[in-house]
Design a protein around this nucleic acid. Structure first.
Lengths: 198, 198
DNA sequence: CAATGTCAATCGAACGTTTGTTATGTTTAT
DNA sequence: ATAAACATAACAAACGTTCGATTGACATTG
């Protein structure tokens, strides 16, 4: 057995179970049984159930640091498309992230302020900067409120994944449609839904 | 004391507490103390903690039935604006709804399928019909995928409220801005963000 | 080089609390 | 007088944590 096998198994199992049923919906008895380790290992390795949750949360939101890589993009519109593609990839690679995201936004724990809020804010700021850039060089309409525009954009993408359980028999959520979805969302966001009245 | 005062107080307190900390985050001891009633009243009036949660959930999602009132609107664009205004009003009048909404979407209980899914689906279908109407009478662009368009629209509005905790010191969430927000979202959705290249 | 000591990792049992429910008793209104 | 509404106390079960005991790897020592 690996040296850190036990600790890793607890993390992996906790990530899945906390996402599925929340911090209070999972007992460390069930968790340790599912992970195939002894019940005392949670306190031993993590210092307790709450600390384990904190570790999981930090790991989940560490993926937000990769927003930095999008800052090299020059064109505002490409930045926005980069954000959409990055967000979709993030949700595809980690199906549990959205659960922690929405759970902390609607039922914040003590870790919301130090862990979750900074992660979300940095992304929003990145997008606001992009939109303001686009406005000041006459690429985007000057009537736009940058902050509102950004929340609209982020809402589009995230809600697609959030609503999955309720809409999956109306709208396909297959990853094969992702590229089409990106084009579609960019199309709506850029041109709107109405006919051009030339 | 009113005849149903006890039952009503339990419902009101449960609605708030379950929203704030989830089904497993609240004990019926804490709940009954906060409601100012005896601990046995939950089982007496509702048959148990789970049944109480079910009652709260059904009450919360009963507000979705009012979507019927929007079906009288003729113009597709007015229907969409009606949906935005209706959704904002719904969140303003009931600050807890979004928590049950997202909680059930990401951590569904046994009540998701009978209570939550039908409510969401009926709204989505209403919007899809509106968009398809708009496409077939050449009001909207024919390239649009109606279902994707609808999720984008619903995402815009709901995410504004969902993200509040993380974005409230970047974007004002005051109800006084609601009308401006409606105009703004309609504007983006109808015309897009880019300059007209007429 | 074998014997011994050390320490971190892991286990299962046990601890004291808290959980949701219920049995029993009391009040109130008709 | 009766029955519904409410309160109190007690219940078994489950909770998170902690306490010794055991193991195995590795360094120290005779």
């Amino acid at each position: 057995m690996d040296k850190n096998d036990c600790k890793k198994r607890i993390m992996a199992t906790a990530t899945r179970l906390f996402a599925e049923r929340g911090l209070n919906g999972v007992s460390i008895r069930e968790l340790s049984t599912a992970a195939g380790v002894s019940i005392s290992m949670v306190s031993y390795h993590f210092g307790g159930k709450e600390s384990l949750y904190s570790s999981v949360l930090q790991e989940q939101f560490s993926t937000f640091e990769h927003i930095e890589e999008l800052k090299g993009i020059a064109d505002p519109l490409d930045k926005i498309e980069g954000y959409i593609r990055w967000t979709i990839t993030r949700h595809r690679n980690n199906p549990y992230l959205l659960r922690y995201y929405t759970s902390e936004l609607t039922n914040p724990t003590q870790y919301f302020t130090p862990v979750v809020q900074p992660a979300i804010k940095s992304v929003i700021r990145f997008l606001i900067d992009a939109v303001e850039d686009g406005i000041s060089n006459n690429q985007f309409r000057k009537e736009l409120n940058a902050a509102d525009t950004v929340l609209a954009m982020a809402g589009m993408v995230n809600y697609y994944f959030l609503s999955k359980l309720a809409t999956q028999d109306i709208v396909s959520h297959s990853p094969e449609r992702d590229e089409e979805l990106i084009r579609h969302y960019m199309d709506i966001f850029v041109k709107g839904i109405c006919m051009n009245k030339a």
